[in-house]
Amino acid sequence: HNLTITQGKLFFHYNPKLCLSEIHKMEEVSGTKGRQERNDIALKTNGDQASCENELLKFSYIRTSFDKILLRWEPYWPPDFRDLLGFMLFYKEAPYQNVTEFDGQDACGSNSWTVVDIDPPLRSNDPKSQNHPGWLMRGLKPWTQYAIFVKTLVTFSDERRTYGAKSDIIYVQTDATNPSVPLDPISVSNSSSQIILKWKPPSDPNGNITHYLVFWERQAEDSELFELDYCLKGLKLPSRTWSPPFESEDSQKHNQSEYEDSAGECCSCPKTDSQILKELEESSFRKTFEDYLHNVVFVPRKTSSGTGAEDPRPSRKRRSLGDVGNVTVAVPTVAAFPNTSSTSVPTSPEEHRPFEKVVNKESLVISGLRHFTGYRIELQACNQDTPEERCSVAAYVSARTMPEAKADDIVGPVTHEIFENNVVHLMWQEPKEPNGLIVLYEVSYRRYGDEELHLCVSRKHFALERGCRLRGLSPGNYSVRIRATSLAGNGSWTEPTYFYVTDYLDVPSNIA
């Protein structure tokens, strides 16, 4: 807008934040220059609390790290170098490059900038070799853009010569660093050979998330399962459950009422301010606690030095998902009996873990797994792929695949051998790939016309006998059925096997 004052003059007093240069501009645009008398524009009460600059400061050096910015700028000295009290560095987070010096300023003089007072450097006698002032900004957020400017702080001049310097606002972004852990990993099994893994992005990506790394490792069953005799009275049979499938998407929606109208769909109840505040506090606490764990609990591995020492970490090797089922080394339970199943799973520490690289999504279907087997899954978020990966501390989750139908069934015939004193040795093959492992066998036998009897055969007993022995049988026709019990439950009964026990007292003698 054009402003013209045809008559009258300007009068400025007691404006401590208004620089004289701005008042002189007002004289020019209003056409009143030359009308004012000496005392109409006070030299001592206008701009006496402001830094009124008329020179431009330029930054000469900028260096960044993930949490620091090192700045240096060209030296500046007023005509009387004693008038320079120091520099004021202003900075704040700036997602967009549209910041002005006066953003967030209120009537009390406060604003949204963080201000650092910096002492002037030592003055050199040689004007050509003056030290460049600077400042190291610490405690910054990774991968965050900051708006920065600097200006001088000078003393009051009796001659009211307006001098000083100020830089333009520059924008500097800190470097990326390792992201925080992925949030809320959930693993479920939808079949006997697959596990579905879902997660949420890290709360602090500290860069642009480029991919996720998912490692999985087959877990050995508890050692007590191999040692305890679950045929003993009072000892509860062990059981394991597989990871249940995901709930429906509708039930997972946030901010939804727990109660549904019987007449149909209901609208979600909005969260109160107290609920939102509580969630923010919980989120802040979780982030602080995660940072504490990362800094205190997890110790970084030592990389190899120039002395030739090897990095103890196993090298990563990509495998196809079809090879995942046989990740671990199978060892027989008892070496003397080769027909026992290889369900003991000690994992070799030198073995390469299978892994998958996930790009542009937060889910993965891990296939080719062994049925009813526990897996430990390790999830890392990465925001750099080359020249070397920059990934987060791992988040861990466990899951067990679903049982395989008929995996616990005894394959092959049940054979028998009759000894003296009416002892019958029953023999059968253990299931080759049971659900988890076989903890015991149930032997059901009966003599024709009598009630059915049951015998429990422990895992250890089966390994020693290759089956079991029935003792003290009365003469007669017998039928026997056997079924295995694994961590997933009972298998199917075998087809009945028949044998006849004679009275050993009636056996004919070869003595003449």
Rank of each mutant, 00 (worst) to 15 (best):
Q219F: 09
Q429C: 14
S363L: 13
K460Q: 06
S486A: 13
I418F: 12
E356H: 12
E265M: 12
S344C: 11
V296N: 14
Y448P: 12
R447A: 04
R318H: 09
N255D: 07
P314R: 15
Y498P: 06
I276W: 05
S284M: 15
K287P: 06
R218S: 11
G322E: 08
Y396C: 03
G491A: 12
Y230H: 02
K317T: 08
K432Y: 10
E495H: 11
S315L: 11
P338T: 10
R240M: 14
R318P: 11
R471I: 08
L228S: 06
G264C: 04
V359R: 09
T415F: 07
Y375W: 07
I366E: 05
A394Y: 06
F419K: 13
W216H: 05
T307N: 12
G374Q: 07
E433Q: 11
E356T: 14
L235I: 14
L426A: 00
S251K: 14
T288R: 05
S304A: 02
S458N: 08
K236W: 05
N206Y: 01
Q275E: 03
S486N: 01
H352Y: 05
T272E: 04
L228W: 05
E417H: 13
P300I: 01
V297G: 02
F246V: 12
F372Q: 01
P475N: 11
E442G: 12
A484M: 09
E433I: 15
S305N: 15
D408V: 02
R353I: 15
V423T: 14
V457E: 01
R376H: 07
N477Q: 12
R400E: 06
S474I: 12
R471M: 05
I377D: 00
P496L: 07
A399Y: 06
P300S: 05
P205E: 11
R400L: 10
L235A: 08
R481K: 15
E281D: 04
R240K: 15
Y445I: 02
T497Q: 05
Y292D: 03
E281T: 03
Y504D: 10
S479C: 05
F246P: 11
Y498G: 13
C456S: 08
R318I: 03
C391P: 01
S341C: 13
Q219D: 04
Y396K: 01
T307Y: 08
T303W: 07
S509Q: 15
R319S: 14
N383L: 05
D222T: 06
Y375F: 14
V214L: 09
F289T: 03
P245A: 11
V214D: 01
L440C: 06
L437A: 09
C266F: 08
D291S: 01
D506P: 08
E495C: 13
T210Q: 07
H454G: 15
S315G: 14
G322Q: 10
T272S: 12
D291E: 03
G412M: 13
K406F: 07
G207D: 02
I438A: 04
Y292Q: 01
V327S: 12
S320F: 13
V457R: 06
D273Q: 15
S268G: 15
T373D: 10
N490Y: 15
E265P: 12
L232Q: 14
T502N: 12
A407Y: 04
H371G: 11
L232R: 15
I482V: 15
R353Y: 14
R240E: 09
A488D: 04
E465A: 12
V443T: 03
G306R: 12
D450H: 10
K317A: 09
N295R: 01
Y445M: 10
G308W: 05
R218G: 12
F462H: 13
N422A: 14
V329R: 14
V439Y: 14
F355V: 11
Q380V: 12
F246L: 10
L453P: 03
E217K: 15
E465N: 11
F355I: 12
R466W: 06
A381V: 06
C266Y: 12
F289R: 01
Y478V: 02
E465M: 09
P338D: 08
S363D: 12
A263F: 05
V501I: 04
K432Q: 05
E247P: 12
I377V: 06
G476M: 01
G467D: 01
K278N: 05
E221S: 14
P244L: 13
A484P: 07
N255M: 03
D273K: 10
P332V: 07
V501Q: 07
M402T: 05
S344M: 12
I482C: 05
H211G: 12
V327M: 09
G476Y: 00
E420R: 06
S315T: 12
N383G: 07
G472A: 13
E247I: 07
E430M: 15
A335L: 13
V297E: 03
R481P: 01
D222K: 11
F419Q: 11
L277I: 09
N339P: 10
N326Q: 15
A407D: 03
E389W: 10
F499V: 14
E442P: 00
T241F: 15
Y445F: 05
A263H: 12
G308H: 04
D506R: 12
R319K: 15
L277N: 11
G449Q: 09
A309Q: 12
D385V: 06
R471F: 11
L369Q: 05
L369G: 04
Q275V: 06
T333P: 03
V480N: 00
G472E: 08
Q256E: 10
F355T: 07
L293Q: 01
P403T: 04
V358Q: 15
P387N: 15
I276Y: 07
E217C: 14
E356R: 09
N510I: 11
E420P: 14
D273T: 03
T340A: 08
N383C: 07
R483D: 00
S348A: 15
D204V: 13
N421C: 08
T343W: 11
R316V: 14
S223F: 04
P244Q: 15
Q252H: 10
E227H: 10
R471E: 15
L321A: 10
F355H: 13
C468S: 04
D385L: 13
G436N: 04
Y500M: 05
F462G: 03
A335T: 11
G449F: 11
R447G: 03
I418V: 12
E420A: 05
V297M: 08
G306V: 10
F499R: 02
N477I: 11
E227S: 11
G472Y: 10
S315V: 07
A309F: 02
N477C: 13
T415G: 10
K357M: 15
R319G: 14
D385G: 12
Y441G: 03
P245C: 13
L321R: 12
D385S: 02
S284D: 15
E356S: 15
S492N: 04
S268T: 14
L455V: 12
F226A: 07
T307M: 13
Q380N: 15
N339Q: 14
S274E: 05
E452N: 12
V501F: 07
E290F: 03
A405R: 11
C391K: 02
F298W: 01
D409K: 12
P332F: 15
N339W: 10
S274A: 15
T307W: 12
G436S: 13
T494A: 06
N255P: 11
H352C: 04
I410T: 03
S283T: 14
F246R: 04
P238W: 10
G374I: 04
C267G: 03
K460W: 14
I209A: 11
F337I: 10
N208F: 06
V457G: 02
R376M: 01
P205L: 09
V501K: 03
S348L: 12
S274R: 11
P244I: 12
C456R: 06
C456W: 00
R400N: 12
N255S: 06
G374N: 11
D261G: 07
D222P: 06
L213M: 08
E465D: 09
F215Q: 13
T347V: 04
N255Q: 07
Q275Y: 04
P238I: 02
H416R: 06
P403E: 00
N295K: 03
T307L: 11
